[in-house]
Write a protein that binds this DNA or RNA. Structure first.
Lengths: 188, 188
DNA sequence: TGTGTTACTTTCATTATGCAAGTGATTTGA
DNA sequence: TCAAATCACTTGCATAATGAAAGTAACACA
């Protein structure tokens, strides 16, 4: 009866969420990427209770996103610095920022990304690294990787529009009335 | 003593998390983007308890990411379809997928993105939409938008490396031993 | 009449979140 | 020397969220 574990699902999104899906975790990473590293800095910045912060920080250390590092011996003091894995989370934060700005910034945007030199405001988009093409739904889809299980393959086949493998019942995906009896349907 | 509300923070990331930050929400959106729309489909796909699913679906409807739509009148049946706001969440999912694949796919990747036509595997990156430049930390930073409060401005000034506005105490950011007694400082 | 489908709700145990307060090592100031 | 402050937490406990199990309701189909 504890919270469902996403970490042993095969989906990479589920596995990611197992590490950052708890309340506060992502905001802690946001602050860490803003240069925050000390316990009381996080606490003041986030207005988070110290026990919650302690729990989240140790979870993030456990997951290898942060490293707990001693920065002073005499009064033993520690700080939490991003690991490469933690730094790699930045694109996710940028995507969340962009989504939040377009949909929830009712008074106009409060935080934007800009070129440090020119100051030009940036519009973050997710593209293919080699071709630069936008990863829109019509042109790109999910495919099973080498480690994909049968279940994953079936799920992705379904997602790609193939409804023949039995993940969905025989009814057509969208209809006003799912196949009626042989005789009549309600459209008369 | 209820869970801290992120929705009235100014940060767009926090506001996003208020909508999708709960356990299961993002996986539900993932499935929805894979074409799943009906209650029992979600339930089977996610292996989620029906009460949890019902709660999450209504929260996502409330937030305007899904729309509850009747697809059959005679036996009253409903499905949950993505709104434009929900579809816009796709880049975040792709960023999470990429991060999960590079860091938590220990047996190799199970899910990848590919060009539908050529089948070429895609490496998702976040770039500036107009210039196509990678949004790396050294070249891009967060800046306050028109609606930014004083607090937000101070926070972002701090993040950009300006430590003069008082968000951090006078001690140097990183040192082996924080400023000792008045006599000398660590620079000799 | 009886079973099956779909979309849920209700009840209740267990976890997680979060407030308030306390701890301990040390530095700083009077 | 002694009080006050700093920093990084911990402990105790109330409330809220998660989740398992079972039940409900409206139909369809045989």
């Amino acid at each position: 009866m504890q919270r469902t574990n996403f970490g042993n699902m095969q989906c990479p999104i589920a596995r990611s969420l197992e590490r950052v899906g708890e309340w506060w975790s992502i905001l802690i990473l946001r602050d860490a990427l803003h240069g925050v590293s000390r316990f009381d800095e996080f606490q003041k910045s986030l207005n988070i209770a110290p026990n919650m912060l302690a729990r989240r920080l140790s979870a993030l250390v456990e997951s290898g996103l942060l490293e707990r590092r001693c920065y002073s011996d005499r009064p033993a003091r520690y700080e939490y610095v991003l690991t490469p894995r933690g730094r790699d989370f930045r694109p996710v934060l940028i995507a969340l920022l962009a989504w939040g700005n377009t949909h929830f910034a009712t008074e106009g945007p409060s935080v934007l990304l800009a070129d440090r030199k020119s100051g030009a405001i940036v519009e973050p988009v997710v593209v293919d690294g080699s071709s630069g093409r936008l990863l829109n739904e019509t042109e790109f889809h999910y495919v099973p990787g080498p480690a994909a299980s049968e279940r994953t393959r079936r799920r992705l086949a379904y997602a790609s529009g193939d409804r023949s493998l039995g993940e969905r019942p025989p009814a057509p995906p969208i209809s006003k009335s799912p196949r009626r009896a042989k005789g009549r349907n309600r459209h008369g």
